[in-house]
């Protein structure tokens, strides 16, 4: 008498994507609050905003935009690589995405340092001597690009995590706890069967000295038989990265292109 258990279990791929999209909605609305302030203050101080924006370097902004767009490309390519069965390419693309993210952050760092060196930062004496609209412009500039940059950093950390996961992944693990599955198998053995029912592996006989049995496997799907749900986590991180890109797509013209 045997009992079978799905090794990779029932994961709700669509459900986890749904959860991720809802989380992204919260991120967009989080930034939306700041865009609301931008809109309101720009309406109040159109001239000051125009003048202050002249301080920003359009070239750096454009380069940063291109960097992020390209990082979105490499992000999408990493997932496509998984679907094509190409683990190596996937890992390379993830790494390239991180590097692009890093390049963005380096640019941002130098941009900020330049401003700060010129005395332009929140509450600086230099800034406070300027018209109110310009003070607000830079208050919003540092806040919005700062919080955006924080999200880029978080994305980079997540991607590094994904790099290692793809390297070791996907794998599956099933464990049977004493009192539960183990009890049922008492006296029998755990076995892994191929599709024809031939045992690929068999455990020692189960007895009540065992508290817990863990079975781990490692596998990598071939292109024709990949399951999208195996890459669910990478896809979700990808979605996050793209949203961070989209936020920048709006930040860019509003801060750099209103001269």
């Amino acid at each position: 008498m045997s009992q079978s258990v799905a090794l990779v279990g029932h994961r709700d791929y669509t459900g986890s994507k749904l959860g991720m999209w809802m989380f992204l909605a919260t991120e967009v609305i989080l930034f939306g609050g700041m865009f609301l302030l931008y809109a309101a203050y720009r309406s109040d101080y159109p001239g000051d905003f125009h003048a202050a924006a002249g301080e920003l370097n359009t070239l750096v902004g454009t380069v940063n935009t291109l960097i992020l767009l390209t990082s979105s490309l490499t992000m999408a390519l990493s997932i496509a690589a998984c679907h094509h069965g190409n683990r190596k390419l996937a890992m390379i693309m993830i790494l390239v995405t991180v590097i692009f993210g890093g390049a963005f952050m380096v640019n941002k760092y130098f941009e900020w340092m330049t401003k700060i060196a010129h005395g332009i930062y929140p509450s600086s004496e230099f800034l406070l001597a300027h018209p109110k609209g310009e003070i607000i412009f830079f208050g919003l500039y540092f806040t919005m690009t700062g919080i955006h940059g924080l999200h880029v950093l978080i994305g980079m950390v997540l991607l590094v995590g994904m790099f290692f996961k793809v390297m070791n992944q996907p794998n599956a693990q099933v464990s049977f706890l004493s009192g539960h599955g183990l009890q049922r198998a008492d006296g029998g053995r755990l076995a892994m069967l191929d599709p024809n029912g031939v045992p690929l592996w068999k455990s020692e006989p189960i007895d009540d000295t065992m508290e817990r049995v863990v079975v781990k496997t490692k596998y990598w799907p071939v292109k024709s038989r990949f399951r999208v749900e195996d890459f669910s986590l990478l896809e979700n991180v990808g979605l996050y990265w793209h949203i961070v890109d989209i936020i920048w797509i709006f930040l860019f013209p509003l801060f750099y292109l209103i001269t």
Binding site: A6, Y13, T14, H83, R225, F226, V228
Partner: peptide
Amino acid sequence: HDNETPHESA
């Protein structure tokens, strides 16, 4: 949800 159809790989 065992029967998720695999997406075409783009």
